[in-house]
């Protein structure tokens, strides 16, 4: 029996490994953002390099999972959904990595009084990713709990929107930031961070439908 299900076990752990990478990517983003705001640029660059290599690793793992799902005709009924979920989850990681890269390239200068709010924004975005990953795990093992999970993802996505909204208002109403071009640049950066939870929300929507299809 164990030999019979060895391949299945391998596949299960590959999916788990992939989800672990996404969680780690979220944490690296949070750390990177923190170091950027405190101006510790060496440590920030380290985190950026880490998230970059982690992204490549996740890409490779994702391709292998997709390949195996097709070649071994596993879970024929749910395969399309699982592939969609995994691919979109990859997009979440990509957005996080791209945002850090953008910070490194464009070096946006946030006024100090916005720092805490930006940290909160980053924290809420990462919590959103963590909730999403937990929900994906539920989809595989305990489909009944997916509904609770997607609700939590939606909650944190709204939280991110609220914080981002407050930051954007502050940017545009604050006279300390003189130039409109500067205001617009900062707004774009905030929207990039916001994008992480938006992508997570898209995956969460897919999960809701996939879970309904999976109910026995």
């Amino acid at each position: 029996m164990p030999v019979l299900f060895r391949k299945t076990k391998e596949m299960e752990s590959k999916i788990d490994d992939y989800l672990d990478l996404v969680i780690r990517g979220g944490l690296l983003f949070k750390e990177g953002l923190k170091y950027y705001l405190t101006g510790e640029m060496d440590t920030f660059d380290e985190r950026l390099a880490s998230i970059d290599s982690l992204e490549s690793e996740a890409d490779e793992l994702r391709r292998e999972i997709e390949n195996r799902l097709y070649t071994q005709t596993l879970i024929p009924e749910s395969r399309g959904d699982v592939l969609g979920i995994i691919e979109n989850t990859d997009a979440v990681l990509n957005v996080a990595a791209e945002t850090l890269m953008m910070f490194s390239v464009e070096r946006p200068q946030f006024p100090t009084d916005l720092h805490q709010m930006i940290r909160d924004l980053g924290d809420a975005s990462v919590t959103c990713i963590e909730e999403l990953i937990a929900t994906i795990r539920s989809y595989f093992r305990d489909v009944e709990r997916v509904r609770d999970g997607t609700n939590r993802v939606l909650f944190f996505e709204k939280e991110v929107d609220t914080i981002a909204d407050r930051i954007k208002r502050k940017i545009f109403h604050d006279d300390a930031i003189g130039h409109l071009s500067l205001k617009m640049h900062l707004r774009d950066c905030i929207e990039d961070i916001e994008n992480i939870s938006d992508t997570a929300e898209e995956v969460s929507d897919r999960l809701s439908i996939a879970a309904i299809k999976r109910s026995v």
Binding site: L4, F5, T8, K9, M11, E12, I15, L74, I75, S78, V82, Y139, F140, R141, D142, E144, R214, V216
Partner: peptide, 25 residues
């Protein structure tokens, strides 16, 4: 058997892939 299977699957929380493998056998 449907009611029994539903109860069992919810209680045992078997991974989708494992369930698929068991189901094939």
């Amino acid at each position: 058997f449907y009611l029994l299977a539903r109860q069992t699957i919810f209680r045992l929380k078997i991974h989708l892939l494992r369930r698929d493998a068991y189901n094939r056998v």
